[in-house]
Design a protein around this nucleic acid. Structure first.
Lengths: 130, 130
DNA sequence: ATAAGGGTTCCAGTCACTGGAAGCTCAAGA
DNA sequence: TCTTGAGCTTCCAGTGACTGGAACCCTTAT
């Protein structure tokens, strides 16, 4: 399979697939003409990576997960630990965004949004005492 | 004021303040010795930037907001538009993270997390039919 | 013969900093 | 007066995970 085929079948852009090879996540063979020659296993790995990335795992987490996936001697506790840590990070990020959202939504509600210059959003950013 | 003072009073690291000067967000004067000499107004602007960044506004949004803040002829509708657009982006990001979170939490719940190798997290990432 | 549509490499840019090196200035103490 | 240490300066490189673009090669069809 050429890179375009695996791109179509994995849903990853060719650029991303080349990048994953650069950083050693996949190691496709090469044809005589210099083209990458992907096996079904390569495709499978790339699809795995695509799903892991879609769940927000970092590249380094993906590398670990792929390593565990290919290690028949793994313990599921290792996988779960990676996932739980990531889950905690997601929860922290959601909490942070939610706090921003609440503040911002309040400010937007109190702003007239008309032709006059006075604006509680700017007042808040300027640190004016409410 | 030297950069250390404004750093303390604005809560921004010196590195960040220099960076903000680099990209033209503040333009402190210079003392004879080459040190940056910040005015109260510079400090005020930096604090403004710190609060805007804390609400997740991009640097370019911050530039716009600061411009509006200093433009007495602004219309509050302009400010509100910037804020509403950013709010929509935050909402989209929260929704995306929440979706990840739900999937991931489910997978974590179903994983034994013991010494055995079989793991529904890996099975899901591998695309195994549930 | 040529043109289109693959593929290849390499370099630069994104965003908002952050770390580190090398060197200058200033205030205080011995 | 000398020295020490803290604080300031600039510049360069790295972060994460790609993405865009240039320049060039390979294959297939017309």
């Amino acid at each position: 399979m050429n890179i375009g085929d695996v791109a179509d079948r994995s849903g990853l852009p060719p650029k991303t697939i080349r990048y994953y090879e650069d950083i050693g996540l996949v190691r496709p063979a090469r044809s005589g003409n210099g083209y990458r020659a992907f096996s079904e296993n390569d495709l499978h790995k790339l699809a795995f990576l695509g799903r892991a990335r879609a769940l927000g795992f970092s590249i380094e987490d993906c590398r670990r997960l792929l390593g565990l996936y290919e290690d028949s001697g793994r313990e599921s506790a290792q996988v779960k630990a990676v996932a739980e840590e990531h889950l905690a990070e997601i929860d922290a990020k959601i909490a942070q965004l939610q706090a921003m959202r609440d503040t911002l939504a309040h400010l937007v509600r109190t702003c007239h949004g008309d032709a006059r210059p006075d604006c509680p959003i700017l007042s808040d950013l300027a640190g004016d005492p409410a």
